[in-house]
Write a protein that binds this DNA or RNA. Structure first.
Length: 914
RNA sequence: GCCCGGGUGGUGAAAUUGGUAGACACAACGGACUUAAAAUCCGUCGGCUUGAAAAGGCUGUACCGGUUCGAUUCCGGUCCUGGGCACCA
């Protein structure tokens, strides 16, 4: 009796036509029944943890998901065939804003909406035929998951990694709610349409800046990450070397300030009362002698002080509070300012410098105040021009040859734009610093400031601490209890998890939890007195910062993870959209270090390297599609889905117009953009799977572009992918119908057979390299197409030829298994009855088949192609030069003259320089 | 505005370390098969140009310039376009 596994899928005869629906459900059923993709920790094979970014359960899969998970599945199945013990999990990033929006629109609890979406999308994922270990499924909105997030929170709170401070949020004055940046449109609330205000509220923060240096340094360990992502992260962290220094505030002002102006001052005992100092940070201390004013944020204590008796200033400060908090808005808005009338003392010159309020200065960054040097900073320059402030040149270009030293007056010409912001100049008009270059000036100035106890060199990061409090319902509750006597008390382990009630329908006005006494009324774990539970939830980025670790121990009830984490971590391959290059990936790297330092992984071995979570990273491009629209009566664009449109083309295939199928009337063709709800240009993957099958969807996605590029959707391209699978099916069917045989291993071959085996084994080598090293699945598929085209021209008219044919068809079935696993499962069991594809290795190229005696070399004259010659592979340089010179085309080009130089590139070309 | 990418035929793309530009597909066009259509198979396919044909020539990888025997690839600049910018995920 054959093995039951094999019996289930073996067919004596192949059907003559390709019917994806039946073979795909059969293959999926088989993988499910045999537990083919359940990962175990006891295998003696090397582990390969392949992770795709988990989806937000928005309702149904979109093409970006299909692309992401197909890439992951190709790599998983390929590594399985290469002898690895593969683990590929899947889960749900289930907390988030869209569930609350759906609740507002449909009056359904976010929990019910989310779980329904998960159930639907899980079935969709399964229909794609992904080799996922579903026993490890993780859903972040379940108490079993977020319990450990709360547990980690309390540990970090006790360590001081989490702390509380105020932060600025977008406040909708009509809906009385905090808005996400996404909900602020042109400075107004998306629902109320009212001007948004900045409001300061208390929030919990992760002290990620404490890890800034390690996060920066460890980028060097990430050899398997794209350079561009590492560069983006390094710039985001933004380590800078500068000088922090202070201007002196007049005593009568300083003593009336509510708090020290600009934060903590310099550590230790100083000569100056901190309230009398206005601190700023600069990377251009070499221009300090050119400071002509100081700009402070609207919320700065000096601004508040100055506004007390100045109504005009109060109005301006209020105005500064309008608008969103997004950095892009801040840096593109019109720079405005107003004089406070106050003056502070320059620490080196003793000059009185005016203090202005600038709407572009943010209280939350650095000290909430900046020095301004209009002569050497573009923003300051425009600001000074606008408000007629002094501009003082203190850097001059290096003297050119033949020019004397000294000030070159470039401000009377347009030349200043060329150089004024560079660091490559000489100090002028700077008293004792005249003649110094950038480094010398910084050293001297920092030393002088330090001597006066008014400044010092300081390393600063652009990276800011991560605020995680959200005034929302559908998120993980922050495990803190506020007690009037004990303060902020973390929820003790035995009271975890703090469960989020799931039957709530938010109404869009503030946090529902804050209106539920049953949730927030509690007692203090320390003193037992009445206390109030925190009603804010955590940023959903927190859940996605550690889920990769939970997959290793999804059912662990005694800790965040157990010893299985040490088996699987780090993730060998991570795959996800380029849009996550900074935030998500930085937070996950941060969490890996936090978990390590809290001791979550116990004793990890050194070679495991648990400092970084993701060894290799692929950032996939977006899926884009054409857009179509009509202008409605109110002037708004009405977007029409591509599926409802017919496009006409000219005789070259260029689109000439489009009509809506429903009414036959024209629609406007828009740009090709990322598939999105707002542009209504999404194509439903389900429709493609239903019509052509999962293999066609997978093949098209992998063929149309390499993973990192954006991918343009094309219905015709999908047809093409389907046609290829039909051709492959027919070729295999035609062969199998004549009877299967043992694949060729040895024996005499004729020229055609030799040529086919040469191409076959070159293809194997290329496909292996394309999938395994280059991750260019498109060229791997193209090579298989070429091979199949060659098989079509190959005459299998002898037993030897049929054995070579068998060898080639088997190899194609194996090479394409990672990409189109369902059809390959059937092809394989037809080619090798009784054998299971799941047990097969990736084919290996036969070096003997690739030996060539003769090769073709290109002949160039002055770098231009003029012909080619076939030569013995062993031909030496002198022979090659002679052959090339004798070539007819070369003789013609030289026209009797002799060659000046001959360049021979072995195995490639001969270039004759005339 | 700042940081990081991208730009190659009618279209998606390929060219892996500076060495034959356009592999493989899609579309289009021509042909075979068919009563016909679909499907399938075969052929042509960057632009300009010489030639009856066979076969050639020039030009061409967003734009301008540079390095090199040779540049889609390296360098400098410009334009256009995509991603991110800390509360979308």
């Amino acid at each position: 009796m054959p093995h039951p596994k094999i019996q289930a899928i073996s067919r004596k005869y192949m059907q003559s036509n390709y019917h994806p629906a039946s073979i795909e459900s059969e293959a999926q059923q088989y993988w499910h029944n045999t537990g083919a993709f359940t990962a175990s920790e006891t295998s003696d094979k090397p582990k390969y943890y392949c992770l795709s970014m988990f989806p937000y359960p928005s309702g149904k899969l979109h093409m970006g998901h299909v692309r992401n998970y197909t890439i992951g599945d190709v790599l998983s199945r390929y590594h399985r065939m290469k002898g690895y013990n593969v683990m590929q999990p899947m889960g749900w990033d289930a907390f988030g804003l869209p569930a609350e929006n759906a609740a507002l629109a449909n009056n359904v609890p976010p929990a019910a909406w989310t779980y329904e979406n998960i159930n639907y999308m899980r079935r969709q994922l399964q229909s794609l035929g992904l080799g996922i270990d579903w026993s490890r499924e993780v859903t972040t909105c379940t108490p079993e998951y977020y319990r450990w997030e709360q547990w980690l929170f309390t540990r970090l709170f006790e360590k001081g990694i989490i702390y509380k401070k105020t932060a600025t949020v977008n406040w909708d004055p009509v809906d009385h709610t905090v808005l996400a940046n996404e909900q602020v449109i042109d400075g107004r609330g998306w629902r109320s349409g009212e001007l948004v205000e900045k409001r300061d509220i208390p929030m919990y923060f992760f002290r990620i800046t404490q890890y800034a240096d390690e996060l920066l340094q460890d980028l060097n360990k990430l050899d398997g990450w794209p350079e561009q992502v590492k560069t983006m992260q390094a710039n985001w962290i933004g380590k800078s070397f500068g000088v922090r220094f202070a201007f002196e505030i007049p005593d009568e002002v300083g003593t009336s300030l509510p708090s020290p102006a600009g934060g903590r001052g310099i550590e230790g005992e100083g000569k100056h009362p901190q309230n009398n100092l206005l601190w700023v940070y600069t990377t251009r201390a070499d221009t300090i002698m050119g400071v002509t004013f100081v700009a402070v944020a609207a919320e700065h204590p000096l601004a508040t002080y100055a506004a007390q008796n100045n109504p005009e200033l109060s109005v301006f400060i209020d105005e500064c509070k309008h608008g969103g908090t997004a950095e892009a808005d801040m840096s593109t808005m019109e720079k405005k300012g107003m004089d406070t009338g106050l003056k502070v003392t320059h620490p080196l010159t003793g000059e009185q410098v005016p203090v202005w309020i600038g709407n572009y200065v943010l209280m939350g960054y650095g000290d909430g105040a900046v020095m301004a040097v209009p002569a050497h900073d573009e923003r300051d320059f425009h600001f000074a021009q606008k408000y007629d402030l002094a501009i003082k040149q203190v850097i001059s270009p290096r003297p050119q040859a033949g020019e004397g030293a000294g000030v070159r007056d470039v401000f009377s010409t347009n030349e200043w734009q060329e150089w004024y912001a560079t660091k490559d100049g000489i100090c002028v008009n700077s008293g004792k610093y005249d003649g110094m270059n950038y480094d010398q000036a910084i050293d001297a100035i920092a030393a002088d400031l330090a001597a006066k106890d008014l400044g010092e060199k300081k390393v600063q990061f652009r990276l800011r601490d991560w605020g995680i409090s959200r005034q929302r319902y559908w998120g993980c509750p922050i495990p803190i209890i506020h007690c009037k006597t004990c303060g902020d008390v973390p929820v003790p382990d035995e009271q975890l998890p703090v469960v989020l009630p799931e039957d709530v329908v938010p109404d869009g006005a503030g946090s529902p939890l804050a209106k539920m006494p049953g949730f927030y009324e509690t007692t203090c774990p320390k003193c037992g007195g009445a206390a109030r539970r925190e009603t804010d939830t955590m940023d959903t980025f927190v859940e996605s910062s550690w889920y990769y670790a939970r997959y290793t121990s999804p059912d662990c009830a005694t800790g965040l993870v157990d010893e299985r984490a040490n088996h699987w971590l780090p993730v060998d391959q991570y795959i996800g959209g380029i849009e996550h290059a900074i935030l998500h990936l930085l937070y996950a790297r941060f969490f890996q270090k936090l978990m390590r330092d809290v001791g979550v992984f116990g004793e990890a071995t050194a070679e495991q390297n648990l400092d970084e979570p993701f060894k290799n990273l692929i950032t996939q491009g977006m899926v884009i599609a054409p857009t179509f629209y009509r202008i409605a009566d109110n002037g708004k664009k009405l977007w029409i889905n591509p599926a409802e449109v017919d496009v006409s083309t000219d005789d070259k295939g260029r689109p000439t117009g489009a009509t809506l199928r429903a009414d036959g009337l024209p629609v406007t063709i828009g740009g090709t953009e990322k598939m999105s709800k707002s542009k209504n240009n999404g194509v439903d993957p389900q429709a493609i799977i239903d019509e052509y099958g999962a293999d066609t969807a997978r093949l098209f996605m992998m063929f149309a572009a390499p993973p990192e590029q954006s991918l343009e959707w094309s219905d015709a391209g999908v047809e093409g992918a389907f046609r290829f699978l039909k051709r492959l099916w027919k070729a295999t069917h035609d062969h199998v119908e004549q009877g299967v045989m043992a694949a060729y291993t040895s024996g005499e071959l004729n020229a055609a057979e030799k040529a086919l085996r040469l191409q076959l084994h070159q293809t194997i080598q290329k496909v292996d390299d394309d999938i395994g090293r280059r991750r260019t699945f498109n060229t791997a598929i193209a090579a298989n197409m070429e091979l199949l085209n060659a098989l079509g021209k190959f005459n299998a008219n002898s037993d030897t030829a049929r054995a070579v044919m068998q060898e080639a068809l088997e190899a194609i079935a194996l090479m394409l298994t990672p990409i189109v696993p369902h059809i390959c499962q059937t092809l394989w069991s037809s080619l090798r009855p009784g054998s299971d594809l799941l047990d097969q290795s990736f084919p290996q190229a036969d070096q003997a088949a690739m030996v060539q005696d003769e090769i073709e070399l290109v002949i160039q004259v002055n770098g231009k192609l003029r012909g080619s010659i076939r030569v013995a592979k062993t031909a030496d340089k002198a022979t090659l030069e002679q052959l090339a010179l004798a070539h007819e085309a070369v003789q013609k080009q030289l026209a009797g003259a002799s060659a000046k130089k001959i360049i021979v590139v072995p195995g490639r070309l001969i270039n004759i320089v005339a």
